[in-house]
Design a protein around this nucleic acid. Structure first.
Lengths: 193, 193
DNA sequence: CAATACCTACCTAACGTTCGTTCGGTATTA
DNA sequence: TAATACCGAACGAACGTTAGGTAGGTATTG
């Protein structure tokens, strides 16, 4: 891995943990065992480094969903695979998830547009197509949004959920989350799950 | 309103917009038309001010759900009212929502515990009780979590959702969100909504 | 072939600014 | 007169950033 990639990788972790203004260029330099000015040799300033880091983190996940939308699968099987995949990605790559959450809080409209186009749009279209097959609803956009929102926030709320009554350790297992989410999506909360 | 309350109120807004390290004590002092040292007359340091501000923001919402859990209502009516109320609170009090999202990203386990006990626990128990009446599922905790997660993240993702295909302006109206979420919870995505 | 120029990838040291915080003083009020 | 609520000025530390220099590789040229 090149120096530049190594800096980016490290920056992703630090930004995701401490946010933009919480991470200092000196911290980053120390983490990659370089001088501060060496970092400035690769990136013009902190802002540009941050944007590059966000790009870098998001690009790594672009292909994670490639195997989900295979044509020969039934619609409900596609949905099931997507949910499983989303749960896995968001649980495994913590930096990616946290960076995304921070972008949702901090990004301006331009960055939001980029986030939509580069990270979400493709998967979102696939997801809408599947939902259209499964549902008679006219609000496909909203349903697709609901699927993503449900998974994202369940995972984000895990450290909180641990301190709420009725919590069990199995609630944090990837398969359990995926199965429950899918069950909720297909049948609502009334189901026997 | 006292000076202290005014500082707290302003701090809530600034912290929610810029995060802990993004907001400076000088910014805050300027926003409340005081000197920096005047702020330090009311709060010992930035950390304590932040914790007070979080408390302050959360305390304001404690009573928002009081009218939801009235005993003489049917379970599905209670759930409906809770969803509507949650959508209203999170959409209306933007500072509260953003501060909560930031706490989910930044808080350590102790603060997470506090957040659970002081903000969520009471509503969460009520919600679990209602779900237990509605559902045959054994995973009441997880279902309750799903309800909250769904609403939170749908609202959080609104600025992103605007740039995804199929978006319509009505998707951001409070009644529409509440109705769609409730419909999803009761019937899954298959329903006609 | 050897001397030259140039580039990349780093370094140390420092610039000016902003940060959280404190000190000493001053009105106002009870 | 003693407490409360403020102020301006300053402290040292940390911040983003830049200047100037060096070591090593590579290409150019006499």
């Amino acid at each position: 891995m090149s120096s530049k990639e190594y800096i980016l990788q490290t920056a992703v972790t630090l930004f995701s943990k401490q946010g933009f203004s919480g991470m200092s260029m000196r911290d980053l330099a120390k983490s990659v065992n370089m001088s501060t000015s060496a970092v400035y040799h690769h990136f013009p300033n902190k802002q540009a480094l941050y944007l590059d880091a966000v790009h870098f983190a998001f690009a790594k996940q672009a292909s994670a969903f490639d195997e989900v939308w295979q044509a020969e699968l039934a619609a409900d099987e596609k949905l099931s695979r997507f949910v499983s995949c989303l749960v896995r990605v968001l649980s495994t790559d913590v930096d990616f998830r946290r960076l995304m959450q921070r972008e949702l809080l901090d990004a301006d409209d331009g960055r939001m547009q980029l986030l939509a186009k580069e990270v979400f749009q493709e998967q979102f279209c696939h997801l809408m197509a599947v939902i259209e097959q499964l549902s008679e609803s006219r609000q496909v956009h909203f349903s697709a949004l609901s699927v993503i929102a449900l998974v994202c926030d369940i995972i984000q709320m895990q450290p909180l959920s641990r301190h709420l009554p009725g919590w069990q350790a199995e609630h944090e297992q990837l398969d359990f989350i995926a199965e429950h989410v899918l069950n909720l999506l297909m049948n609502g909360i009334k189901s026997k799950g």
